[in-house]
């Protein structure tokens, strides 16, 4: 199955952030990478460099990756200062060496944000995103209790817009690209996806308040409308959703201030 490759004609230097652990100091280390094919992916370049390091008895560069087709959101390198590198609307794993010129030095760092501490080398801990989801990024629907799928029609434009927002892969590039390390685009995408659908209405206010509250508590910064997030997003999710998030948040805050809290739930009967 393996075919003869295109003749290699690229030589690159990788300047990679090496950091042994969260509390150890990090530094840049240069690695020469000669004889590369332009059809090689950027992560395959890291594979090749790592195999070379291993053969020399050195420890390879730790980097996060999995599906290598731009959908799992695991890969997370800042390449030449841009989260996910030089492409537009692609993740790190979808960068191919044809994006670079022979002789280039490529600077590779982890996504940097206070809420994403470095674990090792290029690997960061993005568990904060899971915590935001756990606070409210869902529609409560127990298996077995759902009505027929066509019981509630959803206008196509709303479904399409919800899908645009739902395309988020949870990589964190929006946070890494933002000078405030804000997670507003990530939160806005989930709040908009669920808030645009009829199924998402009952928990709409609770959801936005809980997700924004958790986002703030986890140390993400605020939004100052620079839109770097959308530019870095591998799914090109629009910053318009942030405006939608702000509207939802404001409305929910006002409603929650004026609505009497229910007296209590459960109990009683029987």
């Amino acid at each position: 199955m393996v075919a003869p490759s295109t003749p290699p004609h690229l030589s690159l230097t990788l300047r990679v952030w090496r950091q042994a652990g969260p509390s150890q100091p990090g530094r840049f280390v240069d690695y020469a990478a000669p004889g590369l094919s332009p059809d090689m992916s950027f992560l395959e370049l890291l594979d090749v460099v790592n195999d070379g390091l291993t053969t020399k008895g050195e420890e390879p560069i730790a980097f996060a990756h999995d599906c290598r087709e731009g959908i799992c959101g695991t890969c997370s390198c800042t390449i030449n200062g841009k989260p996910h590198g030089p492409g537009q609307g692609v993740a790190t794993c979808q960068i191919y060496l044809r994006a670079f010129r022979d002789g280039d030095t490529i600077v590779v760092e982890p996504f940097r944000a206070r809420a994403f501490p470095v674990v090792k080398d290029l690997v960061t801990d993005r568990a904060a995103f899971d915590k935001i989801q756990q606070a409210g990024g869902f529609i409560t629907a127990r298996a077995g209790s759902a009505p027929d799928a066509n019981a509630a029609p959803v206008p196509k434009p709303a479904a399409d817009l919800a899908m645009d927002a739902a395309a988020c892969i949870g990589c964190g590039a929006c946070v890494a690209a933002c000078k405030n390390a804000s997670a507003m685009l990530f939160v806005a995408a989930k709040v908009s996806h669920l808030g645009l659908l009829p199924q998402g209405q009952p928990e709409r206010d609770k959801r936005v308040l809980a997700m924004v509250g958790t986002m703030d508590a986890l140390g993400f910064g605020n939004c100052t409308n620079q839109y770097e997030c959308s530019a870095a997003c591998p799914k090109l999710i629009s910053h318009d959703f942030i405006a939608r998030l702000n509207r939802d948040y404001l409305a929910a805050t006002v409603r929650s201030a004026f609505q009497p809290a229910p007296a209590g739930t459960g109990g009683g009967a029987g």
Binding site: A149, P153, P155, H193, L194, Q199, G200
Partner: peptide, 19 residues
């Protein structure tokens, strides 16, 4: 399909709003 729609999975829809 019922379960996924209830969870908010944004399946493709026709102009009438049905799946």
């Amino acid at each position: 399909i019922d379960q996924c729609v209830a969870q908010g999975v944004p399946f493709a829809r026709e102009y009438g709003g049905l799946l």
